[in-house]
Design a protein around this nucleic acid. Structure first.
Lengths: 347, 347
DNA sequence: TTGTATGCGTTATCAA
DNA sequence: TTGATAACGCATACAA
């Protein structure tokens, strides 16, 4: 008659399991954490008791005592952009391999929300934080690092070397896109993108300009159409401005700073009765799933999104476990995926 | 000379703050949890000490002692489908209002992963769990409920009434879609969707059949083209089968069980040189952002996604806080959004 | 192989 | 208004 006191609605603890199994509290703990050091018989008894009582280990208590957390976190910049979900997917896979949980938070581009999330995550003492920040040089990131929590910036490059980062070579990406258009014979090209506060927009434009100049084309024939954001709606709006240009100045191709812009531009163009690529060739950036799925499959610059996430997770884990970890800025190489939207040779 | 022992790399605790501020540990706690009961002077002193030391409250300890968690969790079914992100967005907003954090996990349609997540979340003692499960009647869900953790099933309807659920009336959605096509004069319509293990697919088909029959159209002219999944690729494949049908049996319109299918079908159709809606009208389901952004803007059945998430969050919070909570199955009404892809009158 | 005792950082109760 | 102290549930060092 094991004098197990009834747990009135209380959720069962190790103590209750111990009582039910007729062993001590320490043994129950051993069954969970070092099962090899407890005899098969008692182990089985304990496990049965756990099952019967519906015991679920209290992670807060475990973590408080053990001092280690079993979770990683990713603070995502924009939940409506599939790009980040692919990154998250890569992180998730790496986390799975390391037997960690991944918690995804979403800042939705708002600094305050980002700060709230970071604060909560620090309070949770997560093993590490991956983040695509609203501003790559936000003080909040340094705060995290200062407290010794491993943090890796994803898809942005902070100017300080205070933490690791992973990014894709955006200048190269810009070059690839425009080089492809030049090869197709285009000599008047629009660049859609903005605001310029986004580092990547500038770099892609810079790459475009570099290869343009190297090809001996006049700078004026690479026209920058600024956008207020990287969204489908802005792509449509820019398309209207493009269509409004006098025919002799109107580009025969457009390079968009991301796929959302490109999809918006595609929609506007087709809706206005123009054909892609015959009247206008389009190159996007990111190669999200919907780029390939568009009515006119979109040529796009692919970023190795999953690998980006995976690499970031590995860096954060290295920082968390390897005492001689050194911060590094990893750079990945983008790749052009040619599809129908640029399938025509000009001139 | 406050004898504060140096914290060798240790992260500072309330005790350290207390020492630095020259007050007792309990006072520091009060500053955090009941600031009104501590004098302005000491409060300020404590707050300064916190700032100087970079104190971050240990959530594990807080939760262990206080017994309450400050987080909600959403276990998402498919991270690649924007639909679920809009749902998550709605949950996030509700969580924000309640001053809770939302952790998003992703099962990616895999039961094992779902179980791992649920297990971890139970260990974390989250306040409540929202989930779009792989199987709406999975035993794992009952497990969670049995342990007294509030759980709400999102966008699925479990047959048991053991927990709350929020869903959209899919039979009605199917009716709306097909009614719209009938009004446009279509008398031969394809339904794309599958597998039938997904309850929603069946219900949308059922709704389609109901209104079809009520309109006195012959059952054989509503053709079911089964798909293996609700993906863009499957939509393309189904499009090929559709195109292969003999002309006299070929439908003039297609109703797709979700927008991904519809986008795939649109792409295949346009790629094959057919026009939408002239040669084939298309109705999708979900009205994801990319439906409106398609080259031919897609008519779609809109689900109130954010509201779905918000309602789910409110239910879970009610269950968590209201002792006389009663489980309920909330049903939302879908709405047809007509766009270009069905803009033509037939016959 | 198992049991006992201690402390992780916090909150809350009670005295002062 | 503040300080001392006892839990919360678990992991671990050490004793048996």
């Amino acid at each position: 008659m094991s004098s197990r006191q009834p747990l009135n609605g209380r959720t069962p603890s190790v103590k209750d399991v111990a009582a039910a199994a007729g062993v001590s509290l320490g043994t129950v703990s051993n069954v969970m954490n070092r099962p090899e050091m407890v005899s098969a018989g008692t182990r089985e008894r304990v496990e049965r008791a756990m099952l019967e009582l519906g015991f679920v280990r209290n992670e807060s208590a475990r973590q408080l005592r053990a001092g280690t957390s079993r979770t990683l976190a990713y603070v995502m910049l924009d939940g409506t952009n599939p790009f980040f979900h692919d990154v998250a997917q890569g992180i998730e896979l790496a986390a799975e391999d390391a037997d960690l949980s991944l918690f995804i938070c979403n800042s939705n581009g708002r600094t305050e929300r980002e700060e709230v999330h970071l604060d909560r995550l620090m309070q949770q003492r997560v093993q590490g934080i991956l983040i695509t920040p609203v501003h790559p040089d936000a003080a909040a990131l340094d705060e995290v690092a200062r407290r010794g929590i491993p943090i890796v910036v994803v898809d942005r490059t902070p100017s300080s070397g205070a933490f690791c980062s992973v990014a894709v070579d955006d200048v190269l990406g810009g070059r690839l896109a425009v080089e492809h258009l030049i090869e197709r014979g285009h000599t008047r090209v629009a660049f859609l993108g903005g605001p310029e506060s986004i580092g990547q927009v500038c770099e892609r434009l810079q790459g475009a300009r570099e290869i343009w100049a190297e090809s001996g084309l006049p700078a004026d024939d690479l026209i920058h159409l600024p956008t207020a954001a990287l969204t489908v709606g802005e792509g449509r709006a820019a398309g209207e401005r493009l269509a409004g240009l006098p025919a002799r100045r109107r580009p025969t191709a457009a390079f968009c700073a991301n796929d959302l812009l490109a999809l918006g531009l595609l929609q506007q163009t087709v809706g206005a009765g123009q054909r892609v690529p015959e009247d206008l060739a389009i190159v996007g950036y990111d190669d999200i799933e919907f780029a390939a799925a568009a009515a006119v499959p979109l040529t796009s610059v692919r970023q190795p999104r999953q690998e980006l996430g995976r690499a970031a997770a590995q860096l954060v884990l290295d920082e968390a476990t390897n005492p001689q970890h050194e911060h590094q800025q990893a750079t990945f190489i983008p790749e052009l995926v040619a599809r129908v939207s640029t399938a025509r040779q000009v001139g």
